[in-house]
């Protein structure tokens, strides 16, 4: 019995990436997790007000860098009451059953323009690999992360039945990540 806490600690440590890459905390007032989508062929923007992430990133230790992002789907805000009332409903996010979306990276790679995160995005009960290209600029203890990726909403079951029609709402949704982060001491 006595060894249990030790074992738990050991397992806990093993589950986390090695502690080499820096830990970062999102500065919410200066950050935005947004998206661009189309409705009846017209473009609109939205964002999620509530999201959190565990983030580790060091340019010189990508092997131990990684993100685990949780998004509160009920916090969607597209600036239109009619849309925002519909989005939590069953054909769209179905927040009653799936209140949260999650993105967990498996790998961070360097690219010509910066980096890309290879991870699994889960919306509703659908999980698919999403590769998010991004830039990461560090200024002292602050970092700016900018990235965007186009996903097909119907792969994630967002907009079911009649709403699958691309003329009602386009299938492509551009997810835009614009974060300001503070380095956190381990």
């Amino acid at each position: 019995m006595r060894s249990y806490p030790v074992l738990a600690l050991a397992l806990g440590l093993a589950a986390m990436p090695a502690l080499a890459a820096d830990r970062w905390q999102i500065q919410h007032p200066d950050s935005r997790l947004g998206f661009e989508a189309t409705q009846q062929g017209g473009q609109f923007e939205g964002h999620f007000a509530d999201y959190s992430a565990q983030m580790r990133f060091s340019a010189d230790d990508l092997a131990n860098s990684g993100f685990d992002v949780r998004i509160d789907m009920t916090s969607v805000d597209t600036g239109s009451g009619q849309r925002d009332n519909a989005l939590p409903d069953k054909p769209w996010f179905h927040t009653e059953v799936f209140p949260e979306a999650r993105y967990v990276t498996r790998e961070i790679r360097r690219t010509d323009d910066g980096y890309e995160a290879v991870g699994d995005l889960t919306i509703r009960d659908n999980t698919h690999e999403v590769i998010l290209p991004f830039t990461w600029q560090v200024d002292g203890d602050t970092a700016m992360m900018d990235g965007s990726v186009v996903i097909d909403r119907t792969r994630f079951g967002v907009g079911q039945g009649e709403w699958q029609d691309p003329q009602v709402a386009g299938h492509d949704v551009e997810v835009i990540v614009d974060l300001t982060l503070d380095r956190v001491a381990d």
Binding site: Q39, Q40, G41, G42, Q43, G79, S80, G81, Q82, R83
Partner: peptide, 12 residues
């Protein structure tokens, strides 16, 4: 309603 309006898919 803050809906977008794209005229015949040509111009928003």
């Amino acid at each position: 309603a803050n809906f977008p309006l794209n005229v015949f898919g040509l111009v928003q």
